[in-house]
């Protein structure tokens, strides 16, 4: 954990002005009141381009306080460029303490993963979302998708899943897998692997979603029902691996495949870097081995 420090002079706390934070908080309240419903908001120009997490940053900036502890992950890792930049951004503009240790964080901003460690009632998970509209692939018109949500006309989403099964023999969507929130709204969970979808269901923490370029905020309040769409005879399944984490031996976490050489060598390692580090600290050790091409890959 990095301790709090004085924020940069000349900037408002957490960069955004108070009126903007107020507007975003109002959008968040509305989103929490209608789980899964996309609330439009006045997305501001941020000091990083669209597509780099501006939505998530605006949500975090609007809820973060002096005593919060912030964790930022990108594809599960705290040490990638984007995670580091965003964490530093808040350290400098809000002067808040930051951490890589999931249980110590009060706010976790994430791109494309949910931490393996189960979250608690006093944590908030902020997702970075590229395309908030789950129906955009079939219906390019915003006017029409709004009507579809209003009238709960979601049959076409199952068409996509049907199509997958017809063409590939299984539902091929492996990330950004569509979910039904609170038995009502169809939601895009952001490009998290479907492996993470079950974690969203009745999660204890508040889940907030921000899409800066598309200017939408949505939310899943704690303990809300989140179901992944499927068919009775093709039920929702998560990914499996035939390997455990090479470093810590975890058999229950999402594994990244890391290419180690030019001869088909690779290692499977926990995507959640903090989870893996924690296990190793507690003495777990993985097989530490490189696997050759030809053995089974992730399903």
């Amino acid at each position: 954990m990095t301790a709090a420090a004085s924020p940069l002079a000349g900037y408002n706390f957490a960069y955004l002005d108070e009126q903007t934070k107020r507007m975003i908080r109002r959008a968040i309240l509305k989103a929490v009141a209608v789980p899964g419903y996309q609330v439009p908001f006045g997305s501001r120009e941020m000091p990083l381009p669209y597509g780099w997490g501006t939505g998530g940053i605006q949500v975090t900036a609007s809820i973060i306080g002096r005593d919060d502890v912030l964790k930022v992950i990108d594809q599960g890792a705290d040490d990638t460029t984007n995670a580091v930049s965003i964490r530093q951004f808040f350290a400098r503009t809000a002067g808040v303490a930051t951490t890589e240790h999931t249980p110590d964080a009060s706010i976790i901003q994430t791109r494309h993963r949910i931490p393996e460690t189960p979250l608690s009632d006093d944590q908030i998970l902020v997702y970075q979302v590229p395309i908030p509209e789950p129906l955009r692939w079939i219906e390019p018109r915003e006017t029409e998708t709004r009507k579809m949500h209003a009238l709960a006309e979601y049959g076409v989403m199952h068409v996509k899943l049907y199509e997958d099964i017809a063409r590939f023999g299984q539902i091929n969507t492996s990330y950004n897998y569509p979910v039904l929130v609170n038995h009502r709204y169809l939601m895009a969970p952001s490009p998290i692997p479907k492996f993470d979808n079950p974690k969203m269901n009745r999660m204890r923490a508040l889940q907030l979603f921000g899409a800066g370029r598309e200017k939408r905020i949505y939310a899943v309040p704690p303990f809300t029902r989140v179901e992944s769409l499927d068919f009775e005879d093709y039920p929702f399944e998560v990914q499996h691996w035939d390997h455990v984490c090479a470093l810590c031996g975890a058999a229950d976490s999402y594994l990244d495949e890391v290419i180690t050489d030019d001869h088909g060598g690779r290692m499977f390692i926990c995507s959640d870097s903090d989870y893996c580090a924690g296990r190793r600290e507690r003495g777990h050790v993985g097989p530490q081995e490189t696997v050759r091409f030809g053995s089974d890959a992730a399903e």
């Binding site: 068409v159 049907y162 199509e163 099964i165 017809a166 009775e232």
Partner: peptide
């Protein structure tokens, strides 16, 4: 029609729209 999905999906869509959830039956 939806030109970019299969014939089966085109026909099955209305069934799915009113709640049909068994792939085999829809097909």
């Amino acid at each position: 029609l939806r030109m970019d999905v299969s014939a089966g999906a085109n026909i099955g869509e209305r069934l799915m729209a009113v709640g049909a959830r068994h792939y085999g039956d829809i097909r």
